[in-house]
Measured scan of single mutants.
Amino acid sequence: SEEWVEIALRLLELGREANINGTILNLHKEEIEELIRRLLKRI
């Protein structure tokens, strides 16, 4: 399964939302940290 691709796409999506909203992603901080942890486990 290409889970890391899904994770990377989700991170990009959150990054785009952050640019549009001008936020520092506090809302998504925990989700982002969890996604990155899952991503690093696969490398």
Results as ranks from 00 to 15, higher is better:
G15D: 02
V5D: 04
L39Q: 00
L9Y: 07
I20V: 13
L9A: 05
E2Y: 12
I36F: 09
E13P: 02
R42P: 09
I24A: 07
L25A: 06
E13I: 11
E2F: 11
R38A: 05
I36A: 02
I24Q: 07
A8H: 04
L12W: 11
A8T: 06
I43N: 02
K41V: 12
N21M: 14
E31D: 07
R38F: 12
I7V: 05
I32V: 08
R38S: 05
R42L: 15
L27F: 04
A8K: 02
L35D: 01
L25M: 06
G22M: 12
L27Q: 11
R10A: 09
L11W: 08
E3V: 11
N19Y: 14
R37A: 04
N21A: 03
R10E: 08
K29R: 07
L39T: 01
A8Q: 03
R16N: 03
L40W: 09
S1Q: 14
E30S: 07
V5R: 05
E17Q: 13
R16E: 03
R42G: 11
R38Y: 11
N26V: 13
L27V: 10
R37W: 13
L11Q: 00
E13L: 12
R16I: 12
E17F: 10
N26K: 02
E33W: 14
E17S: 04
G22Q: 11
E17M: 13
I24T: 09
E33K: 06
N26P: 11
L12T: 04
W4I: 12
E33L: 13
I36L: 08
I36Y: 05
A8D: 00
E2I: 13
L12M: 04
W4T: 01
E2T: 09
I7S: 03
L25P: 10
R37V: 07
L39I: 09
G15R: 03
H28D: 03
I20Y: 08
E34K: 04
I7F: 04
N19R: 07
R10T: 02
R38Q: 08
E17L: 08
T23M: 06
R10H: 06
E13A: 08
G15H: 09
A18P: 03
S1K: 13
V5I: 09
E2G: 13
I7K: 01
E30H: 08
T23P: 13
L25V: 13
G15S: 08
E6K: 07
R16H: 08
W4D: 01
E3Y: 09
E33P: 02
E34P: 02
G15I: 15
T23F: 15
I43P: 06
R38N: 06
E17W: 09
E13T: 05
R37H: 10
I24Y: 03
I32A: 02
A8E: 05
A8W: 10
L14P: 01
L27R: 10
K41Q: 04
I20L: 09
E2N: 14
L9E: 03
E3K: 10
S1C: 14
R37T: 13
V5T: 04
G15K: 04
